[in-house]
Design a protein around this nucleic acid. Structure first.
Lengths: 200, 200
DNA sequence: CACGCTATTTATAAAAG
DNA sequence: TCTTTTATAAATAGCGT
């Protein structure tokens, strides 16, 4: 056996050698994950780490926690915290929408039935968090029935309009029992690199 | 001086004593951040850490990188990677929308002018990333002029519809020169805990 | 390339100031 | 309560199998 030497401190800069860079990536990724786990356990705090592998492979993403739902939850919390304070001119939806609501109610009712009939009971839950990920799932679930749904909505004031340029529009017409101020929930998702898709 | 002892390994479980838990939180947070920095530097990878403080204070969120835009960028990447594969029935927007586009074009043109006149040049940039955070900023900027904008959109097919139940709808009518397939960009943001707001 | 090994450097729990 | 110190545990870079 040789005498080991030269494992000293290294400069804090990009590791030039690709081989050792990959090795270091693996080791330190593991270390970071472990630290996150310990930190979370010892102090009982929400921690989330997202790491991208050095390759261009899209599937090379590593997270802690592993569960995408947890990642989403923690990230969502971040967004709700860091968002700028709304400075809206608040309009009383209840009053202004009242007559429009009446006009739309009948249609909504039909739509709601149609949608429930389509058996997407998880939708409500999905909407409880702002989540690009979940909206995607939702969209995928909806898609087979969008045409049918659309037949109900064509030419209605509240219809789904369109999706252009990687902007996908989804309309939640389930309506949540249409309590005051709840006409319908519009959920739109803009995602990059997405195929053109349209609800006409 | 006393002889130091008892700094040994500790059980991997919640630290009962609040005082030392807080101390550990600070120390390990710092350590984790440092690790993330080193990792990112040595291996040139995107890393993002989000940590919530143990208190209930909403502003107790710590991230690495510190820059919210970086956090947003990295998180956005995560979403675009983990999203389920779209299984859309792709419709050729160019064809189907062509005549509707013609009808709408004139209005869009007016709207675009109105909007540019309102001097929100940053909007385009904002739209380059899916970002709850940025959409908030955008919405806040738009708000003072939404009424004016709305006057143009009332009763148009492409008007902003409404926001109910913490779902905020924003319409980008800038139109990006209305190239084929680009009617307009609809941007909707659903954010929790937000005041009722409506564009009627 | 995936594992061990070990010299060193780091991180950090607890004590001290 | 904060800051610094110190003993110990962990992490890990370079090497070998």
């Amino acid at each position: 056996m040789n005498i080991n030497m030269g494992r000293g401190k290294q400069k804090m800069e990009l590791i030039a050698d690709e081989k050792s860079r990959r090795t270091t990536f693996q080791k330190r990724k593991k270390g970071l994950m472990k630290k996150a786990y310990e930190f979370s356990t010892l102090c009982d705090v929400d921690v989330c780490i997202i790491i991208y592998g050095p390759s261009k492979q899209e599937d090379e993403v590593h997270t802690w926690p592993t569960d995408p739902n947890e990642v989403k939850r923690i990230v969502g919390k971040y967004y709700s915290i860091t968002k700028s304070k709304p400075a809206y001119n608040v309009v009383n939806v209840f009053d202004i929408m009242s007559d429009r609501k009446r006009r739309i109610d009948a249609d909504i009712s039909k739509l709601r039935k149609a949608f429930y009939a389509a058996k997407y009971p998880t939708w409500h839950q999905s909407l409880d968090y702002f989540s690009n990920y979940e909206l995607d799932l939702l969209l995928n679930r909806m898609n087979p029935n969008i045409e049918a749904l659309d037949r109900y909505t064509v030419d209605k004031t509240h219809r789904v309009k369109l999706n252009i340029r990687n902007v996908v529009v989804v309309v939640d017409l389930v309506g949540r029992s249409m309590r005051a101020g709840q006409i319908s929930n519009f959920v739109l998702k803009r995602s990059l690199n997405q195929s053109p898709f349209m609800v006409s």
